[in-house]
Computed example of a mutant assay.
Amino acid sequence: MATKENEQIITENNCETKMGLPYVLEAFTSIFNTGSISNKCCGELVVLGKVSHLALVKRTLENPLFKDLNQTTIIAKSIQTWNNCLALIDSPSPSA
């Protein structure tokens, strides 16, 4: 993985400041462990943007604490989470 490229993307897009910490932790748990992601968090994730989302996931995988994780699986889960959130945000909400 291109560490410098991820860092450059994260810096140039202010990725670390676009989402509040509670949402970052919720998305992280959904991707790196198991868990669901709330509609509000999905909204925050979509605002963050796909490029920032993937760069942050890839940077996390570069951390030695996560060296034992299957990177392909984590990347796939992050894309699945992104796609699910995008579909949720794009779909019209039922009118009350």
Rank of each mutant, 00 (worst) to 15 (best):
L86W: 07
S52C: 15
E16F: 05
V46Q: 04
G20C: 08
A2H: 10
G43L: 04
T60H: 03
E12T: 02
E26K: 04
L54S: 08
D68G: 13
L65S: 14
E12L: 09
P94V: 08
Q71P: 00
E44A: 15
N84V: 02
L25K: 12
S38W: 06
T29N: 13
E62F: 03
Q71Y: 11
M19E: 08
C15D: 05
G49M: 05
E12Q: 12
F32C: 08
N84G: 02
T60K: 10
S93Q: 14
L65G: 13
I75Q: 03
N33H: 07
A27S: 15
C85I: 06
Q80R: 11
P92G: 09
L48T: 09
L45N: 06
S91R: 15
Y23A: 13
I74H: 04
N84C: 04
I74T: 06
E44S: 13
P22D: 14
T29H: 14
G35M: 05
E62R: 08
T29F: 05
I74R: 04
N39R: 13
T73W: 08
L61D: 03
G20N: 10
I79D: 04
F32N: 05
P22Y: 08
Q8Y: 00
I89F: 03
A87N: 10
I75N: 06
C85D: 00
P64N: 10
T11P: 01
G43N: 10
K58R: 14
I9K: 01
A96R: 14
E62Y: 02
P94Q: 13
L86H: 11
T34C: 08
W82A: 01
T34M: 12
S91G: 10
C41Y: 02
E7C: 09
D68L: 11
L86D: 13
N33Q: 11
G49C: 06
Q8H: 03
P64Y: 07
S93G: 11
V57P: 00
K40A: 14
G43H: 01
C42H: 04
S30D: 09
N39V: 10
T34Q: 14
I89H: 00
I75D: 09
A76P: 01
G49T: 01
L65K: 15
N14W: 04
P64L: 09
L25E: 12
L45P: 01
S30N: 11
I31W: 00
A76G: 07
L61W: 03
G49L: 01
Q8N: 14
E5V: 09
K18M: 01
F66Q: 09
C41N: 06
V46P: 02
D68F: 12
F28T: 02
K50P: 01
S36K: 14
F32Q: 03
I31L: 00
S36A: 15
H53F: 06
G35W: 05
R59M: 06
T3D: 12
I79C: 03
L69C: 05
T3V: 13
M19A: 02
N70A: 10
E12K: 03
A55Q: 05
Q8M: 07
R59V: 02
I31C: 01
N39A: 15
L45T: 07
A96I: 11
N6I: 09
